[in-house]
Amino acid sequence: MSQVQPLVQEIVIPDRVKADNPRQSLAAEVAERSGTELNRCYQCRSCGNGCPFVQAMDYTPNQVIRLVQFGLRQEVLTCKTIWVCVGCHTCSSQCPMGIDLAAVMDTLRLMAVEAGVVIGKPNIIDFHEEVLRSLEKYGRAHKLGIMLGYKRQTGRWLKDLDLGLRMLAKRKLDLIPSRVRDANKEIADLFTCYWRESA
């Protein structure tokens, strides 16, 4: 006769309950990195009402704050809004609670790049990368090179072609880049960040 198994196994009760997710909340992380207290937001929508670019956004700035408070990391890091924001600070200067929304957007963009998520407005990050390529090479922005590189990435060669030609005719686009003397030494050295590996 085999030994009868006890019906109830011995249960080990830990003397302390460990939280499942010790990670800092999204709201706390964004507040810390942006240096602005976003939990003061009471959804008055001043930011969204004043934003000149709100029509091109998928969430209004106050909705972005809400996503952060709810901890919806994926939704907020992949949204378009954070990329459409150019940091004009209209929202920040209108917020009755003194929340620097532009700093929040800044932080969320960086977090999206760091997390390597799908970018909500890929053409905008393409543009920023093109600018950085120019800065790495010359130490200064060579606008003609940036626009050509950007067109190569997006494949939209005909867009703004007439404008480009008009600017060339007015000698507003220099063919030869203005550059830093020892760009290879002092400037290229600064380009050691993670975006290079992912790009």
Partner: peptide
């Protein structure tokens, strides 16, 4: 021998780069 201030692009992609520029 000044260089670009870093502009929005460096600010967006990497804080160290933006500060360094």
């Amino acid at each position: 021998d000044w260089n670009c201030c870093g502009s929005s692009s460096a600010q967006t992609m990497c804080r160290n780069l933006s500060l360094g520029m």
